[in-house]
Computed example of a mutant assay.
Amino acid sequence: MKLPIVAYGDPVLKKVCVDIDETYPDLQELIKNMFDTMYHASGVGLAAPQVGLPIRLFIVDTKGDEDEEAYVKVFINAQILEETGEPWAFNEGCLSIPEVREDVMRKPNILISYYDENWVKHEEKVSGFSARVIQHEYDHIEGKLFTDKLSLLRRQLLKSKLDNISKGNVRTDYKMRFPKQSKKR
């Protein structure tokens, strides 16, 4: 089932998310629905806050490119332990902030600890594009958006566009929930 994606401005996107355990209700169904939602929206990652849930869960599928193999994973209660390397800029977007893309600086290598969907604990080094996607999704469970990493000037220049997104004045090919949308539509 495809879930509505929460748009910029919803308070859930700014919450530091809470850990979950094996008893979290319908977790496997939620994970499946998140993958369905992400694929339908042509995303490479999706975090639980983006579907309205303030829990430490995110998924990635980088689909692979000419330099890397496809990287498909579920991350539960993740903690980034280390970020290393020379920061590099990459033009990022976000399913919760459609039609906005900006260059964001991130380090190319991470060490991350997490549980997978079968509650197996992992500690893994990840590099390149997959590391960037993980950092972006990890920011979501920490209550941060990629726009928070932009300069104050850049955020000011994007303010009206971001306000329009929160009001629902944006077109997407996927279902969204807008925090400031007028009920008269």
Rank of each mutant, 00 (worst) to 15 (best):
I31S: 12
K14F: 11
Y8T: 01
F75S: 00
P25V: 15
I31E: 13
Q181D: 13
L150W: 07
S42D: 10
N118G: 12
P87D: 10
Y24L: 09
Y8M: 08
M1T: 14
P49V: 04
R56M: 00
E66F: 08
L3C: 08
V74H: 14
V170S: 07
E123M: 09
A89C: 07
V44C: 03
I97L: 00
G45A: 04
G85W: 07
V44P: 00
L162I: 12
F90P: 12
R171D: 10
E117G: 10
A41W: 02
S160D: 13
L111A: 02
S113Y: 06
P179I: 03
D26L: 09
L162P: 08
D19R: 14
S127A: 14
A47V: 03
G43A: 00
T37P: 04
P4N: 13
E92A: 00
V60Q: 06
I134S: 01
K184Y: 13
E22P: 12
R154W: 03
R132K: 13
K175E: 10
M1K: 08
V100L: 02
C17F: 02
V51M: 04
L3Y: 07
F35P: 03
T147A: 14
F75N: 00
D10G: 05
V18I: 13
V16S: 07
S151F: 09
K183E: 11
K125M: 08
L158K: 02
P54E: 04
V126I: 11
G85Q: 08
G45W: 01
A47Y: 05
D21I: 05
R106W: 09
K149Y: 13
G93S: 07
P49N: 13
N118K: 08
V18P: 00
D139A: 07
K183Y: 11
G45V: 01
K175C: 05
Q79I: 11
R171T: 13
P25M: 09
T172S: 02
E86P: 15
L157P: 02
Y174G: 01
I112G: 06
K144Y: 13
T23E: 11
S127N: 11
V74D: 09
L95Q: 01
